[in-house]
Amino acid sequence: MHAIRSATAGTLEEVGRLSAFTGRFFQSALSRPFEGRELLRQCYAIGYRSLFLVLATGFIMGLVLTLQLRPTMIDFGAVAYMPDMVGIAFVREIGPMVTALICAGKIGSGIGAELGSMRVTEQIDAMEVSGTNPFRFLVVTRVWACILMLPLLVVVADAMGLLGSYFIESTRGQVSLALYFNRAFGAMAIGDLVPATVKTFFFGLVIGVVGCYKGYYSAKGTAGVGRAANSAVVISSLLLFLVDFIAVLAADILFEI
């Protein structure tokens, strides 16, 4: 009983600290000075350097999804609806969620380890004593970069997923790329696109904030850095599912999807 109480208190404390950290981010993110140069560098590091992974994963997910769906669609005589089905599935859920989970693994752990290592080797303190606000320079830029880059990566993953799906379809029958994409986008409504796009900004926020929080307050020593990177992935993955659930629920109410 004591262990449960202590674990609950610990979790609540962590939630409180993470919430305060997020509040501090918004407070700093919307006020001057802006670290534009560092933001661009982080956008490149977070966006461009994750691009290949997202391209490959999106394409493979498109291949796999189509291969898995095809027999059932044939059974129902609905194989002509394959582009509609894959398109909606990718745009609404698979693209955002798979991309976010990949980014939580790659970007979240990277940020956690980098900032953790900077904390342990006193680089963050060095920044502080040189009269620079390390929170603004390190945290705000990284979180903004995640918020801005994740939606773009999701668009790329969606496009690659459809391309992968088209690749399988084109080997099984005669269908043109233009027709395939026309069918896929023709089946989508505003209620599919808007909530799916909006939630990716929140996914970026979650990955950036959790990665930065774990790294910025990393415990001393190399073990502390390892724990920061690991828990950044675990916590952000859990939160991504929670945010996704809330986003789907909100979309269901607002757009009656």
């Binding site: 290592s117 900077m118 080797t121 006193e122 680089q123 303190d125 060095a126 920044m127 004593v129």
Partner: peptide, 12 residues
């Protein structure tokens, strides 16, 4: 006020 850290704390 300059500060020289024990581990140098260069931005790696």
């Amino acid at each position: 006020v300059g500060f020289l850290f024990q581990g140098s704390a260069l931005y790696d």
